[in-house]
């Protein structure tokens, strides 16, 4: 399904996200899962269709990533994804506003010690014209959105894979500084899985795929 729900969801909030997410299938997801999930045939199709993506989506759904790919015009913090303290905003380029830009406090590296501002090169959020909000999206929707050049800063698949596996800001998720939980998969494993997915033609899970169970921020 090619439904572009981002802007609608953006305005409507989390409750609407879940609702819209369930609209595309005949049964609510919970009911489908309770009935034993999809049939074996459907599962196979899902595998060829998008299982390779699902293999590493837990990284994308982790708070280290999701805190800047969530709803609202602001970054989030912590494993509970609470809004960033100090009223920090996304700003016109995703780097904060006026006297509270990201670089006001964040460096291009983590600072030693717990609760010190973390840092990486280009620390920031996606820009407002391309906010890359994954919160509330199904796996399939996340997959589609990160592949969509209109939503991913005009990256082709190679560039996308490079971004996912080599970008310094993304890599920060594996080394988030003292006191922060890193993303839940070794970087080697993640890179390998992303590349496998790339080789397979970067297939996305069907729209009836698993929805945001983790990473949905209240």
């Amino acid at each position: 399904m090619k439904r572009s729900v981002t802007s609608l969801l953006f305005a409507a909030g989390v409750a609407a996200v879940i609702f819209a997410g369930t609209m595309s299938i005949s049964l609510p997801v919970g009911a489908a899962e309770k009935s034993g999930g999809a049939s074996a045939a459907a599962r196979d199709s899902a595998k060829s269709d998008g299982a390779l993506f699902v293999e590493f989506v837990s990284v994308l759904r982790h708070p280290r990533c999701m805190n800047c790919h969530s709803h609202g015009d602001f970054p989030r913090q912590g494993d509970d994804g609470h809004p960033h303290t100090m009223n920090v905003r996304r700003g016109p380029e995703g780097h904060g506003v006026t006297a509270e830009k990201c670089t006001t406090c964040h460096q291009d590296h983590n600072l030693a010690g717990a609760h010190m501002p973390p840092g990486a090169p280009n620390w920031g959020l996606p820009p407002p014209n391309m906010p890359m909000i994954w919160e509330g999206l199904s796996d399939g929707q996340i997959c589609q959105s990160i592949k969509d050049p209109k939503q991913n800063k005009n990256r082709n698949l190679d560039q996308l894979v490079e971004h996912l596996t080599e970008d310094k800001l993304v890599m920060w998720g594996w080394n988030p500084g003292k006191g922060r939980t890193p993303v839940p998969m070794a970087h080697d494993e993640f890179s390998a899985k992303v590349k496998q997915w790339q080789v397979a033609g970067a297939p996305c899970p069907a729209e009836s795929g698993k929805k945001a169970e983790t990473g949905t921020i209240p």
Binding site: M86, N87, V97, T98, A99, E100, T104
Partner: peptide, 25 residues
């Protein structure tokens, strides 16, 4: 003052919301 100076340079007529966003740190 140093925070407010950046605010005014970028927003010469700031709203209360602009002030909240610049000065809450």
């Amino acid at each position: 003052l140093m925070s407010a100076a950046v605010l005014l340079r970028e927003k010469p007529r700031p709203t209360d919301e602009d002030i909240d966003q610049a000065m809450t740190g």
